[in-house]
Computed example of a mutant assay.
Amino acid sequence: MLKILRIAAAISQVTYTESSDLLENNRRFHKLLTTGVEVEYILNEEIVNLIVGSGV
Rank of each mutant, 00 (worst) to 15 (best):
A10D: 05
T35I: 00
E18R: 09
E18D: 13
N26D: 07
A8R: 15
M1C: 04
L43T: 03
I11H: 05
N26Y: 10
A10H: 09
G55Q: 07
K31Q: 12
T34M: 12
V14I: 15
F29D: 01
F29A: 12
E46H: 10
L33H: 02
G36Y: 05
K31E: 11
R6N: 05
E40N: 03
R6Y: 11
T35S: 13
V14T: 06
E24Q: 15
M1T: 10
N26R: 13
A9P: 00
K31G: 07
I42C: 05
S19A: 08
Y16V: 04
L22T: 13
L22E: 15
I4Y: 12
N44L: 08
E38P: 02
Y16L: 12
K3E: 10
S20K: 15
A9D: 08
Y41A: 00
I51H: 01
L2M: 09
E18Q: 09
S20W: 07
R28K: 14
V52E: 11
I7F: 13
H30M: 11
A8V: 04
E38T: 08
K3S: 13
N26C: 14
V14E: 04
S54F: 01
G36H: 05
L50C: 09
V56D: 07
S12V: 03
E18M: 03
L32H: 08
L33P: 01
V52R: 03
V39A: 02
N49K: 15
T34H: 10
G53V: 02
L22Q: 12
T17L: 13
A8Q: 15
E38Y: 00
K31F: 09
Q13T: 10
G53R: 04
I4K: 14
R6G: 01
N25F: 06
N26G: 03
S19H: 12
N25E: 15
I47W: 01
L2P: 00
K3M: 07
E45P: 00
K3T: 08
N49Y: 06
I42M: 07
R28S: 06
L22P: 07
K3P: 01
E18C: 04
E38G: 04
S20C: 06
T17I: 04
G55I: 00
Y41M: 04
E24F: 10
I7R: 11
L22H: 11
K3V: 09
N26Q: 14
I51M: 09
N49C: 02
T15K: 10
V48K: 09
D21Y: 09
